[in-house]
Amino acid sequence: MPPIPLLICDDSNLARKQLLRALPTDWDTTITQAANGRQALAAVREGKGNVMLLDLTMPDMDGYQVLAALREQGLPCKVIVVSGDVQDQALRRVRELGALAFIKKPAEPEELRRVLLKAGLLEKTTSAALRPATESNFHIGFIDALREAVNVAMGQAAAMLAKVLGVFIQLPVPNVNLLEVSELHMVLTDVQSGQPSTAICQGFIGGGIAGEAMLIFHDCDIADLARLMNRSALDYSDLEMLLDLSSVIIGACLSGLAQQLDVMFSQSHPHILGNHAAIDDLIAVGKHRWKKTLTVEISYALEGHCIHFDLLLLFTEDSVQLLRDKLDYLMN
């Protein structure tokens, strides 16, 4: 039989490299890679994707849209989703859109092999490997590696938040940048969008990596959040509710990141920063501690509701090299 045209679609170089490494060596395939959904659809039309390993969280055209387009256009492609978005509703949606299976990132070789066997895409064999383990020839930078690690972590946080609020959480591609303190001030101002906001901050440290997690809620969304949480107790204030939500979101995201970095983060007690003036105060303090800040920005949105909030992870400048060292094994 001729080799199976296999398409790997993910916007992250690191994620594609991890999948290449996880492929069974006895699976006879020709491999094409796509960095976004539009490239993937074009490859399928050219006959380069009878089977696709597909990410969900991508810019421009996400995995859900790819699955919908495959169905609408009648394109013959068997899809296995490989994603960090592990919400129960995400799994249901991809199944409804025709995906054969779902694998949680990062894909383990044994799990990928089991899914391929179950889907009838790989024959059980004890013969010698058809080819050596596949390697990629593209460079994986530090920012890309950290973005992919955060992508997995924020998916775990979204799954927990979805259970608390009973809604589907729309996930973005996280922004990762090394910023001067003045640039960080502009990012925070943009996040606030001129609206009164409540910010909650929580410090973390582990394995020499330190920073602060900042969760920013728009004040106009707080009443809607309270309704989603079915808040009824009169003595359960807005600030207490936001502190509880912050513990879920920040804790789950840091836990997911720590697992990948092989560290254990200790977290300080969260505290309220308040309005924009308080954020200015934080930046003023940061000027004495940081020359540059490695900033991760994640914007969560609640489907069906005009509610969104932003999580920022602010790593100290001294943590950057340690993060590079921890991510090096993922890159190489």
Rank of each mutant, 00 (worst) to 15 (best):
L14T: 05
R16I: 10
R16T: 09
L19N: 00
L20F: 02
I31P: 00
I31S: 04
Q33G: 03
Q33P: 00
N36H: 15
R45A: 10
G49N: 01
G49A: 01
D60L: 09
Y64C: 02
Q65V: 11
Q65H: 11
L67C: 00
L70N: 00
L75G: 07
P76A: 05
C77M: 08
C77N: 02
I80V: 09
I80K: 01
I80R: 00
V81N: 00
S83M: 01
D88F: 05
A90Q: 02
R93K: 10
G98Q: 07
F102C: 05
I103M: 02
A107M: 03
P109F: 07
P109K: 04
L116Q: 04
L116V: 08
L117A: 04
K118C: 06
T125H: 04
A128R: 09
P132C: 06
F138N: 09
I140T: 09
G141P: 03
F142S: 09
V152F: 15
M154K: 15
Q156W: 08
A157P: 05
K163Y: 01
F168H: 15
Q170R: 13
N175T: 15
V176L: 09
V181Y: 12
S182A: 15
L184M: 04
L184G: 02
T189F: 12
T189C: 10
V191I: 11
G194W: 02
Q195R: 14
Q195S: 08
P196Q: 11
P196F: 08
C201E: 14
G203M: 11
G206Y: 05
E212F: 13
I216W: 00
F217N: 01
F217C: 01
H218D: 09
C220N: 14
D224Y: 09
A226F: 06
L228S: 01
L228D: 04
R231Q: 13
S232M: 13
A233L: 15
A233Q: 14
D238I: 07
E240Q: 15
L243Q: 13
D244Y: 12
I250S: 11
I250F: 12
L254H: 07
S255V: 11
M264I: 14
M264T: 13
S266L: 12
H269M: 15
P270L: 07
G274I: 03
G274A: 01
V285G: 08
V285C: 13
T293D: 04
L294M: 01
T295P: 03
E297D: 10
E297K: 14
S299I: 12
A301T: 14
F309K: 06
T316E: 11
D318M: 08
V320R: 08
V320G: 02
L322A: 15
L323N: 00
